[in-house]
Design a binder for these strands. Structure first.
Lengths: 216, 216
DNA sequence: TTGACAATCAAACAAACGTTTGATAGATAT
DNA sequence: ATATCTATCAAACGTTTGTTTGATTGTCAA
């Protein structure tokens, strides 16, 4: 299915690239696949973006900006931790649903040979966790905050949220579920419950369940 | 750094392919990269595996077998849910640490044009969740099991466990952590706490935190 | 000793790759 | 009117791709 014809050439290339990079992977997707889908000449990619790799970086750059801006926005404000975190998780899933292709590209197509991309992402993730520490957990007493390892729980949360979209084809096949609005409402609630209880457990007691066994 | 010379040609190719597929991605990694690293001729790949794609499928097949066999094994037995689940999480992380390259390949290189691979994975995931339902939660009363949505919590757990290894370079850069034995011990404990509390919350009360708000 | 078989290699293959070039049309400014 | 600039295209460029071929070596059986 070709692209809508009223958009500009540059936007048509971007749309096609996002879909095809996600579908076949960046390296496996030839520029001729993209321009055929976009209905433009192959020279247009280098004209508008400079190179195929720069096109990929532009896609990642745009989606990163959306994602981290959303996170920044939801951590501000005076509401309780529960309220902020539930809203954050719900809107994050909403954003991922709207751009599942961009999400998969951002996660799976780590351009290992472009160190500045890794630096960029690491910088944003670090700032995000710092923001969570300052804005989300600032009211907790120090000895509780010491027990909450955000550098573990943060990536775990992101992993929970994103993994479903990464392996979506396997997931739908395995459970015979079609993922509609209702499903994702339940999905967001379930993950929020899981995460909030996990955090709050640290605020009340030391031991996780009955005994926290360390058997071998 | 080339491969160890005492192994067979077939094994040398497999070892090199796992590392390089993970590093550069399947499509971006040329067969000449692999055979140069393995110290063999390029014809050996097609001789021993048939094609480049068959080599990828062999890698995924081997690692899938290890992973799901581990899961099957840990869900059996008469111990309590907490004990089984903690041991499962710990050994899963141990396996992922030993084969981070295979894990990344299995998750990120979904051969979309090979439907049987997706079918294979979907089948295994479905059976795994069914096994968890039968062996892990069989002692719970029915009205509690209805509230535990394993088709959501299961993939969420796998996402938590694997995501760290997928984005490992970003992760290490962001937090300035070197991930040693101690780190992963804490990592496993933290995730087990998080997950067990999230589940046990469903067994006690209906509402997640204070109010389970549904604001907009 | 001869024949068959398995493992290996260097070289060659056509196809596909990302990029560049030169030309063309349309708009805008001088 | 003419020159400049922008957006576009078809065609060609040199590489690199995965695969195949034909020859060579070593091993084991007849």
């Amino acid at each position: 299915m070709p692209n809508s014809p009223e958009k500009s050439t540059k936007e048509r290339i971007l749309d096609s690239a996002v879909r095809l990079f996600s579908q076949k992977g960046y390296a496996a997707c030839g520029m001729r696949d993209i321009v055929r889908d976009a209905g433009v000449s192959i020279a247009m990619v280098n004209y508008h973006f400079g190179s195929k790799k720069a096109l990929l970086q532009e896609i990642i750059r745009r989606f990163s900006a959306d994602t981290f801006q959303l996170a920044d926005h939801h951590f501000e404000g005076a509401e309780a931790l529960e309220i902020k975190l539930r809203r954050f998780i719900r809107d994050m899933i909403k954003l991922f649903r709207k751009n599942p292709d961009s999400l998969r590209i951002m996660v799976t197509e780590l351009p290992m040979d472009v160190p500045e991309v890794i630096d960029f992402k690491a910088d944003r993730v670090g700032k995000l966790v710092q923001l969570a520490r300052d804005k989300l957990f600032s009211s907790f007493p120090d000895e509780v905050r010491e027990r909450i390892h955000l550098e573990i729980l943060g990536p775990a949360l992101i992993g929970m949220l994103t993994f479903h979209f990464i392996v979506h084809p396997v997931f739908e096949r395995a459970f015979g579920i079609r993922c509609d609005d209702d499903f994702y409402d339940g999905y967001a609630d379930e993950l929020a419950d899981l995460f909030l209880y996990g955090i709050l457990s640290k605020t009340n007691s030391h031991h996780a369940t009955q005994e926290n066994p360390k058997d071998d």
